[in-house]
Each structure stands twice: as structure tokens, then as C-alpha cells.
Amino acid sequence: MSLRNIDVQGRTVQVYEAGTGNPVLYLHGIADMHGLVDENCAFHDALAEKFSVIAPAMPGCVGSDEDNSLEGIDDLRFHTLEVMDALGIDRIDIVGNCVGGWLAAEIAAHNPERVGKLAIISAPGLFISGEQIGDLFMAVQPLNGKIDDIRHMMFADGNGVLAEEWIPDQLTGKLQGMLRYKTFRCIARFGFKPPYFYDQKLIDRLYRFKGDSLVVWGGEDSFVPISHATGYGENLPNATIEIIDGCGHAVQLEAPDAVAEKVTGFLS
């Protein structure tokens, strides 16, 4: 595993790289980026056994610069295309988790020529009437000093050790406090204001991506309802849906090996 900083149109972007083999671009979500907590990369590691994993941190996340011009998912899509340009990547298989999955779907719909295979995990991004994506910004506001609500939104077992380890009430230091705050600031730029974590037109544009796609979801996702898995699966022309029972939104943290097996099988 190695980290390096690259220059993208004057902004620093931190890129995590691991493994050898066919290159795969990994677009992270809220809690699964490298560098947030120690030894957090079980899913990354499993992928890296077969592939060369390239995982850039979004603007403001871990070692990447904030980008004040980022105001919506379209800006993030352009940013990510610029990251690919800077890395010399013309076309690549993409695995996207959570908001990274939404981002991957946007790239596939708008720029299908840049994407080989598409795997999306627990991704917001779609508007499905009556099937609201949760308000994770409210859920992470402390209630009596504890942020239980976000743990329950992210994990099937919100009281479990895993949830506690990933989303502790008290962070161990200022560095972690700043990392967490900057992550929320980053996703607030495209998820806080309406449209809340969705792009109203995306669902009708998914047909443009003709490649193979895989949709993986935790069966008990409390952030993005499982109906959104169906939404992706039915509107991407060549999609397979895999539901991991007993898992919540953070499915690749809760069952890294099971998810990696599905994704690896799909990409191989």
C-alpha cells in the first residue's frame, strides 16, 4: 500500500494505491476512505489481492485539498474526471461505495466511454418518490453527547463493536476531529441542500451505460432504502443485484469478504 499526492488543476489530491493486476478505481463513501481510522481497509485489502486499487480521496477528505468551487455532484464528477486525466487513466473499471457509488453512476451515465465495468455499493443518487434517503447530517448531531443515530443509520447493528469502532462518540484527538468534520463538509457540498443526495434526472440517464454493472446492497440499509438498489438494477441495462443479508449501509465494512467476493467475481 502506498499514498501519494498528485496535482489536479492546482489542487492536491491524495491517492491510495495497493495491489497489482488490472487497475480498479475505488471511489469512497463517508466512512470507508483510507486514513480515517487505523487498519480500516479490509475491503481495500481484499480487492488488492486481485487488482491494482487506485483510491483518490475526495476534496477535503484526508490528504486532499478542500475545493470551494465544489457545489454539486456535477462538480464532483468533473473533479473526478480530472483526477483520472491526471493519473493518465482513459478508461477503467470503477467500484464506488455510498456517495462514491453515486459518483460512479454519474460518470457512467455522462461519460460511458471512460468506464469499463461498474460496481456500485449502497449508493444514494436516485430520486424514488416516497423512498427518502436519510438525513445523515441530523443523525450525526450529538444527542445527549452521543451519536448513536448515525451508527444505527450506517450499520445493521448500530450498538455493535464495529459501529462503535468506526463512528466513536469521542474522537481520540484533534486530527481525527478535523478529518471527520472535513469529510462532512465535503459531502455537505453535494448532499446537504436539495436535492438531498440525489440527482433527479440520473435514473432516466442510466440507460446510457451499456457495460456490465453490479449493484451490491446491505439488506438492512437505513440510509439508502433497498428500493434504490432495484432502481439502479432495473435502469442500468446490464445489471446484477446482490443483496447481503444482515448488513446495513456500511456493508463493505460489515462484510468485507462477502462484498469483495461479489465484486472480485464480477470484475474478473
Binding site: 443523525a139 448531531q141 450529538p142 445527549n144 471527520r180
Partner: peptide, 12 residues
Amino acid sequence: EGRSMTFGPGVP
């Protein structure tokens, strides 16, 4: 006590 909406990581 209560839900803090002034000081929490979700307040951007």
C-alpha cells in the same frame, strides 16, 4: 443535553 445542532460534526 438534547440534540446539539450548534456543535456537532453534521453542522456544516
